[in-house]
């Protein structure tokens, strides 16, 4: 059993109007940043998760997204399983 740092990115579904992203896009435009296309604003969840393997951590994180963390009607999610948290700490 290891502790993994699982990062879950939840974003408004592509193609749906994201008012927050649009406001940010306009702000970037008005500040003179060139070449800014569509902006979507979501959330990043960082979860410390005990699991036997990275695959198991990813599978459990997927179930968490389906059940609670993302709304299937409006949001997409992406999961990244980081290094074993303890190992990462030891390495620093």
């Amino acid at each position: 059993m290891s502790a993994y740092a699982v990062e879950i990115r939840v974003t408004p579904r592509r193609g749906l109007l994201d008012p927050q992203g649009k406001a940010i896009q306009h702000a970037l435009d008005s500040l003179g940043f060139a070449g800014v296309g569509e902006v979507r604003a979501g959330k990043l969840l960082v979860i410390e998760l005990e699991a036997d393997s990275p695959d198991e951590a990813a599978a459990r994180a997927t179930r968490m997204c389906e059940k609670l963390l993302a709304n299937p009607v409006t949001e997409d999610f992406a999961i990244e399983v980081g290094r074993d948290a303890a190992q990462a700490e030891a390495a620093t």
Binding site: P12, L16, L17, P19, Q20, A23, N71, V73, T74
Partner: peptide, 16 residues
């Protein structure tokens, strides 16, 4: 809606 008793979802107001 979140509980699945009604379809769809309620998102942030367009005006924010």
């Amino acid at each position: 809606c979140e509980a699945g008793l009604l379809p769809g979802a309620l998102r942030r107001n367009e005006s924010l």
